[in-house]
């Protein structure tokens, strides 16, 4: 099976989910000051969900820790991020 859906792709990745989110989205800024919502498109794990009220919901559990959202975001302060605690987060095995 060569062609795969995004869900099928994500099922091949191992995550050890920590207790605290390492990325925090200030949805207030997304709602009031951002009309682009670049994070929704660029995130390779598709973790940014646009809400009806114009805000953004973020799931940190299946994050690749790549930093693309932070780089792509054009609103200062909307995304705060650091790395997950040691040993937590994504664990690649084959890449």
């Amino acid at each position: 099976m060569v062609m795969t859906t995004h869900e099928e792709k994500m099922r091949t990745v191992r995550f050890r989910v920590g207790a605290t989110p390492h990325i925090v989205v200030n949805s207030e800024i997304c709602r009031n000051e951002c009309s682009v919502h670049a994070c929704v498109y660029v995130c390779p794990a598709n973790l940014f969900v646009p809400l009806d009220d114009g805000g953004i919901l973020f799931n940190y559990e299946q994050c690749f820790e790549c930093g693309t959202c932070y780089i792509a975001c054009n609103q200062e302060g909307a995304i705060r991020w650091s790395y997950p605690d040691g040993g937590y987060g994504v664990t690649f095995r084959e890449s």
Partner: peptide
């Protein structure tokens, strides 16, 4: 015929 083993991403 390739079978997906792992998906990944990096900057």
């Amino acid at each position: 015929g390739g079978k997906l083993r792992e998906y990944s991403a990096h900057l």
